[in-house]
Design a binder for these strands. Structure first.
Lengths: 169, 169
DNA sequence: CAAATTAATCAGGGGACCTTATGATATTTT
DNA sequence: AAAATATCATAAGGTCCCCTGATTAATTTG
């Protein structure tokens, strides 16, 4: 029997965390424009490419659940920022291969490699607890996604956890 | 001396959490359109009003760090959705008082009152740990905000923590 | 009372994200 | 070679968030 009050407390703190973090991000990154989320749009593409470079636009679109047109739009924006390059495949000249530039690779990893300041206030024990808890939560969310839409997990779980595993060690 | 590896692990899990949660939200709320964040735009206004109802537009704007025009836009959108009402002040006929409708109040609290499913996978002990950790993190973030921009904290810390404290018990 | 200040509005814009529709080109199938 | 299919580009549209500038209406102030 789970303690409802404890859940409520945690839920509240979690919401508060989301809010405060959002505000803090806003303040900190108001000069840079890298405060965009990694879960959508251009960020998504960078993430997918940093896991598997040299994907075709079509591949990107299906992996990220975007239409080909959205993908094209974001890719073009990234090209303008010199984060990726487009290049026609020699094998099948219909397809365009997208590759990360060095800058793009940096940008993609910078996003995740930076340890937020607020984690430094935690003790080693708390960090372990936090990691354990988040691992459980993430698993639960993966399950939720799987039951709602099994095909997504194949696309995403891989991309995400591989990406994160990479810079873990 | 903090353990850097532990911090890295936690940071990774946190990022993963953000991603997976975003995807899960997308899947779950694709039918409803309430998957908007509470930290900006219309959501912000609802939040502020649920803490202090009957604010003037000007008050809202300053509290939420928005221009009067943005505020007007969001308020009008909320009026269209029947979440708030506009009413001219009798005291000073320049000002417009914004009030939550019942629906608006529901919507605002529904946002926070719902306990995410993924918390049910945690034990009571873990929930306590989680709450403790998030409390520390939030405090740290408030500090960060305070040093960057002292005036904000007065506006926000209040609004947020009061709002959350309300439904805690 | 005239002047200055304040609250809200209108008009217009920009950026990000995402969609459908249409057409062009290249490849595969028949 | 002709037809069907796949990949990509272009155009257009919509939503959301947020801003600047100019204007109107009400209140305060000198």
């Amino acid at each position: 029997m789970p303690n409802l009050l404890k859940q409520k407390n945690a839920a509240g703190k979690l919401i508060e965390f989301g809010m405060v973090r959002h505000i803090a991000d806003d303040l900190a990154h108001r000069e840079h424009d890298d405060h965009r989320s990694i879960f959508q749009g251009q960020g998504k593409i960078l993430l997918a490419l940093s896991q598997t470079d040299g994907l075709s636009q079509k591949e990107l679109a299906t992996r990220l659940n975007l239409t080909a047109q959205s993908t094209a739009e974001f890719v073009n924006k990234l090209v303008k920022k010199h984060l990726v390059t487009k290049e026609k495949s020699t094998v099948d000249r219909r397809v365009t291969i997208i590759r990360l530039t060095d800058l793009g690779r940096q940008t993609a990893s910078k996003e995740s490699a930076k340890i937020p300041d607020f984690l430094t206030v935690l003790s080693d024990e708390e960090l372990d607890q936090f990691t354990t808890i988040l691992t459980k939560i993430n698993e639960s969310l993966y399950d939720e996604i799987k039951t709602a839409n099994p095909s997504w997990v194949n696309k995403f779980h891989q991309t995400i956890s591989d990406h994160l595993r990479d810079w873990f060690m």
